[in-house]
């Protein structure tokens, strides 16, 4: 057979729906934009600086790790940029530059790369970075102190810290509508509830996050907070306050849904999400931290591999051989 044409030989299927890791990450970044832009408007140029530094340093650490581990350069898939963006969104606008760079280092190196990179991380890298910062330099996460020099038209207290330290009476200072519209002191990207919800709806419709996790997480928040509130309204705030204050919505949409550290089967996703919401309220109401989102999600990351074994029986399994 004389055959001069060299054909491409590969395996079925020969079609692909055209999706890619890069596209997915860009879409998640796009979905985060309303909240980011609002944060920059509210907190000004320092917020922009923190966000950009977080993205840039994350990509830088990823590049360093690529060289150090002699692996293919992976900053092109935008995963490091996305992690940097999400990390930056969770910081107060006045975070010093060295905290941002250190946090990005922990996020990328300890959160992601040492496990083998994309898809192999057992915990959400952003939360690993943030948790270590929170434990090491808790002062920088005191939003009231961090935002001391800002003049707000609304109540300048961070709602969850106020709740923790001053009791349930402060809830009255924060009308739900103001919380939804981002009129609260907090991190750059996590205050604008409406923007986060719009981003979340976009991601759910596009199929880039699993709605089961987001919905069950929110259900977990609402149900647990409601139980606390109903049992003792004098000590515990209502579910809507919890839902729109602090990192809650940001956690439900951008953090709990991180692919690698969350389950993929239906029942596990529901358990995972619900348990996450439950833990957040538990930490807030009877734990030591004002906002439990970071540790609650790290905790559910931990149970993910176990619960993801609950899965449907595959076709032809458990059928006796004819």
């Amino acid at each position: 057979m004389s055959n001069k044409i060299k054909l491409t030989v590969s395996h079925a299927p020969f079609w692909h729906n055209g999706d890619s890791v890069g596209k997915m990450n860009l879409n998640i970044m796009l979905a985060a934009m309303p909240a980011v832009i609002f944060g920059i408007i509210q907190f000004g140029v320092p917020a922009l600086g923190v966000i950009l530094l977080a993205i840039a340093s994350s990509m830088f650490w990823e590049l360093i790790m690529n060289f150090a581990t002699k692996r293919r350069l992976s900053i092109g898939d935008f995963d490091a940029a996305l992690l940097g963006l999400l990390f930056g969104m969770m910081l107060p606008a006045t975070t010093p530059w060295w905290v941002v760079i250190t946090g990005a280092l922990v996020t990328i190196v300890i959160g992601k790369q040492i496990y083998g990179g994309l898809g192999a991380n057992p915990f959400n890298p952003v939360l690993v970075g943030l948790a270590i910062l929170m434990v090491s330099w808790p002062g920088y996460f005191d939003f009231d102190a961090a935002l001391l020099n800002y003049e707000f038209s609304h109540e300048a207290l961070a709602p969850l810290a106020a709740l923790k330290h001053q009791g349930v009476d402060v809830v009255g200072f924060f009308p739900i509508l103001q919380l939804v519209m981002g009129k609260q002191a907090g991190a750059i990207g996590s205050t604008f509830g409406l923007g986060i919800i719009i981003g979340g709806i976009y991601l759910i419709l596009r199929g880039y996050i699993r709605w089961e996790i987001t919905i069950s997480y929110i259900a977990g928040i609402i149900i647990t907070a409601l139980i606390f509130n109903l049992s003792n309204a004098e000590n515990y705030a209502g579910p809507m306050f919890h839902l729109f204050a602090g990192y809650t919505l940001f956690g439900a949409i951008f953090l709990a849904t991180e692919n690698s550290s969350s389950p993929v089967n239906l029942i596990p996703m529901l358990i995972y999400g619900f348990f996450g919401g439950f833990m957040v309220i538990l930490i807030r109401n009877i734990g030591a931290f004002p906002d439990g989102t970071v540790f609650a999600i790290l905790l559910i990351n931990l149970i993910n591999p176990l619960i993801d074994y609950i899965r449907p029986k595959a076709l032809g399994r458990g059928v006796n051989n004819a």
Binding site: S10, G18, M24, G117, L118, G119, S262, V264
Partner: peptide, 14 residues
């Protein structure tokens, strides 16, 4: 021809 890759599973669940 769609590109194929040897990257690891990202666990997206599709």
């Amino acid at each position: 021809i769609p590109h194929i890759s040897d990257s690891a599973c990202i666990n997206c669940g599709k």
